[in-house]
């Protein structure tokens, strides 16, 4: 499925079920997303993690609503299934979409300016370095005799300086590799946007609308 279409579908559905209260549709959606993940060979470990986490938080939220609020069991069921739909839909999207394919699709199909598509991508590809940097900053401070907490301005100060430094370097490197803002580019690979993608989007949304508004509980 075309990445841009897939992203739109996920956001539209997540948005819509935030406002509606039909637990059967939620249930159907979560089953479909789960099946889609199994079909895409998402690892069992990942699936368990994607199930255990919302299980804990959804239960805790439902329990809290029951104790501290006035509500119906129907509504609790809606909230409980809603959280699962969020996580499974998000899981399906993030586990089956390559950031590069998404960036290319946003550039080619959604006409997002290339500076955004590749700017995002360049930063995302730095993710491992960014993760290691936070640990490095904390350890380096410890060696100077200071403990950095989540509420220490210095932690963020260091992080922001690193971010500024790297963004300067990356932008200079992209320019040096011939990237010019707003200039036309060719595409090494074209991301197809087929009629099938539009049909899939339309039909899926139609099905959800039918479910939501035909009087299901």
């Amino acid at each position: 499925m075309n990445p841009t279409i897939k992203l739109s579908l996920v956001i539209l559905i997540a948005f819509e079920i935030s406002f509606t209260q039909v637990w059967t549709v939620n249930l159907a959606l979560l089953i479909v997303s789960l099946l889609l993940m199994i079909y895409a060979h998402v690892s069992l470990k990942r699936l368990l993690w994607l199930t255990a986490v919302p299980l804990f938080f959804a239960s805790a939220l439902v329990w809290s609503l029951k104790l501290q609020g006035s509500t119906t069991p129907h509504f609790l069921g809606v909230i409980f299934t809603r959280i699962f739909v969020y996580v499974y839909l998000g899981g399906w999207f993030s586990q089956t979409t390559q950031p590069l394919a998404l960036a290319r699709s946003l550039e080619q199909n959604a006409k997002l300016p290339a500076k955004f598509a590749y700017g995002f991508l360049a930063a995302f590809n730095l993710m491992p370095k960014i993760q290691a940097e936070v640990a490095t900053i904390k350890a380096a401070a410890l060696m100077r005799g200071q403990v950095l907490h989540i509420w220490s301005p210095q932690l963020y100060f260091k992080v922001i300086l690193a971010a500024m430094n790297w963004s300067d370097q990356l932008a200079a490197a992209m320019t040096s590799h011939g990237f010019v803002e707003g200039a036309p580019r060719t595409y090494a690979t074209t991301i197809p946007l087929r009629h099938r993608d539009w049909w899939l989007l339309g039909l899926s949304l139609l099905l959800v609308q039918l479910g939501l508004f035909c009087g299901l509980p």
Partner: peptide, 19 residues
């Protein structure tokens, strides 16, 4: 928005996500 700003805002977001 220039290229550098776009990269900066993304790296910053990732940092905050990691923290």
């Amino acid at each position: 928005w220039h290229l550098r700003d776009i990269i900066l805002v993304t790296i910053l977001a990732i940092f905050m996500g990691v923290i």
